[in-house]
Amino acid sequence: MPRYEYRCRTCGDTFELSRPMAESAAPATCPVGHEDTVKLLSTVAVGGVASSASAPAAQAGGGGCCGGGCCG
């Protein structure tokens, strides 16, 4: 279930709620009980480790524009 971040306009507290996407625009009450909240625009963080095996051939082998001489 997606997590959404909200900020309370009354006390300034920032908090997260897990709720279905269909309810993402529904009003949220802050943990203290205030109802004047706003949904914040959040960025998505994706974790993982890149390996050299997944690098495109142009980067791994020195080809490509900046390593292959096509820049003039």
Rank of each mutant, 00 (worst) to 15 (best):
M1C: 11
P2Q: 07
P2I: 05
R3S: 08
R3V: 11
R3N: 04
Y4G: 04
E5L: 13
Y6H: 03
Y6T: 03
Y6W: 15
Y6G: 00
R7H: 09
R7W: 04
C8E: 02
C8D: 02
C8I: 02
C8M: 13
R9F: 08
R9M: 08
T10E: 06
C11E: 02
G12Q: 05
D13Q: 15
D13M: 09
D13T: 11
T14C: 00
T14S: 13
T14K: 09
T14I: 11
T14Q: 10
T14A: 10
F15P: 00
L17C: 13
L17S: 10
S18T: 14
S18F: 11
S18V: 15
S18W: 12
R19E: 01
R19D: 04
P20G: 00
P20T: 04
M21V: 14
E23P: 00
E23Q: 14
S24R: 12
S24P: 00
S24Q: 14
A25H: 07
A25N: 03
A25D: 03
A26S: 00
A26L: 09
P27D: 08
P27L: 10
A28D: 04
A28H: 02
T29I: 13
T29K: 11
C30K: 03
C30L: 13
P31C: 06
P31Q: 06
V32G: 04
G33D: 06
G33E: 09
E35H: 09
D36F: 07
D36Y: 05
T37K: 06
T37H: 06
T37D: 05
T37P: 03
V38G: 06
V38Y: 12
V38T: 13
K39D: 05
K39C: 10
L40S: 01
L40N: 11
L40P: 02
L40T: 05
L40E: 10
L40Q: 09
L41F: 04
L41N: 02
S42N: 09
S42Y: 00
S42M: 09
S42V: 14
S42K: 13
V44G: 01
V44A: 05
V44F: 01
V44E: 05
A45Q: 02
A45H: 08
V46K: 04
V46E: 00
G48T: 06
G48N: 04
G48C: 11
A50G: 08
S51F: 14
S52E: 13
A53C: 11
A53P: 00
S54I: 13
S54Y: 00
S54Q: 12
S54L: 13
S54V: 15
S54F: 04
A55Q: 13
P56I: 15
P56S: 06
A57F: 01
A57K: 12
A57Y: 03
A57M: 02
Q59C: 00
A60L: 15
A60N: 00
G62R: 11
G64S: 04
G64E: 06
G64W: 06
G64T: 07
G64K: 11
C65E: 15
C66K: 07
G68W: 05
G69T: 10
C71G: 03
C71A: 10
G72Y: 05
G72N: 10
G72Q: 11
